[in-house]
Simulated scan of single mutants.
Amino acid sequence: MRRADRLFQIVQYLRGGRLVTAAQLAEKLEVSERTIYRDIADLVGSGVPVEGEAGVGYVMRAGYDLPPLMFTQDEIVALVAGARLLRAWGGIAMAAAAEEALVKINAVLPDDARSRADKVQIHALSVAPPSDEVRERLDRIEAAIEARVLLETRYTKEDGAESTRCLRPLGLFFWGRVWTLVAWCELRQDFRNFRVDRFTDMSEGERFREERSKSLLAFYEMQRRCGIPQPRTI
């Protein structure tokens, strides 16, 4: 991570008026506590209102770095509802990030908008939420998509047959109760749609070079040409 990006992330973690220790920041950003101490000193020196000390923790005074645009009422409803959906159905890291996003959103909203956010009555509940294993798998797949990393998988088809696949993960899609992965299957040399809960094993492989013909954009274009709503699900 570039230093400028790390400084930005520190500011984001400190927003919301919560006490955050150097150890917590170091763990989140995967650097040493000594690096965090230097970064905090640089932020303070540049005028960022960070208060605290080593061994105790840091907090940023409310009101710093307000966004130039405020959310509309409808946008607030959408953000809160979306975050609640991810908390209920997303990966473990996704759910934690959704919770963090709600805290940050509330930190910058004026009183009337914050009151509207608190009154959003859209909830995501389920009698059969994804298992922790599936949630963790979602996070790993999302990370592999971002990093362009191959996934070596074992997969159980709808008819019970098992297969081993090497996949280029391209996109995750949520269908109400089921998550699917759109991927380029190296075995079939074609796009395929895989149910995330049917993977029986998965490991990260080598990075792959992005190819236009094997991208998510190419998949969308193929869908449009063929007039089909989704790729073949196995």
Results as ranks from 00 to 15, higher is better:
K28L: 09
G45P: 06
G63H: 11
L109E: 03
E30V: 12
T72D: 00
A98V: 02
L85F: 04
L19D: 09
P67C: 00
G57P: 06
L125S: 05
G63N: 10
G82A: 07
Q121A: 11
V20S: 05
R34Q: 09
V77A: 03
E53Q: 14
V103M: 04
I122K: 02
A26R: 08
G55T: 07
G45W: 08
P67A: 00
Y64G: 08
R18C: 10
A78F: 12
D39A: 12
G91K: 06
P130K: 05
A78R: 13
K104W: 00
L43H: 08
V80E: 08
S131Q: 02
R114F: 04
V56Q: 03
L69I: 14
V77H: 06
V127Q: 06
R135T: 08
A22R: 07
L66T: 01
V120H: 02
A117E: 06
I36V: 11
G47E: 06
G52W: 10
Y37T: 09
Q24F: 04
D112G: 00
A88R: 12
S131W: 00
L85D: 07
P67R: 00
E30T: 12
G63W: 06
A128V: 11
T35R: 12
K104S: 12
I40P: 13
D74G: 01
E75T: 15
G16Y: 08
D65E: 13
V108N: 05
V80G: 08
S46M: 13
D118C: 03
V134Q: 01
G63V: 07
Q121D: 09
A97L: 04
L85C: 07
V134E: 03
E136R: 13
P129N: 12
V11I: 12
H123E: 15
R34S: 13
S46I: 02
G90S: 05
R114E: 03
A95Y: 03
L125N: 01
T21P: 03
A117C: 09
L109A: 07
R84Y: 01
L79K: 04
R38F: 12
D118V: 02
V108G: 09
L102P: 09
V134N: 00
L29P: 09
G47H: 04
L86A: 14
E33F: 04
H123W: 14
P110K: 07
G63F: 06
V44H: 02
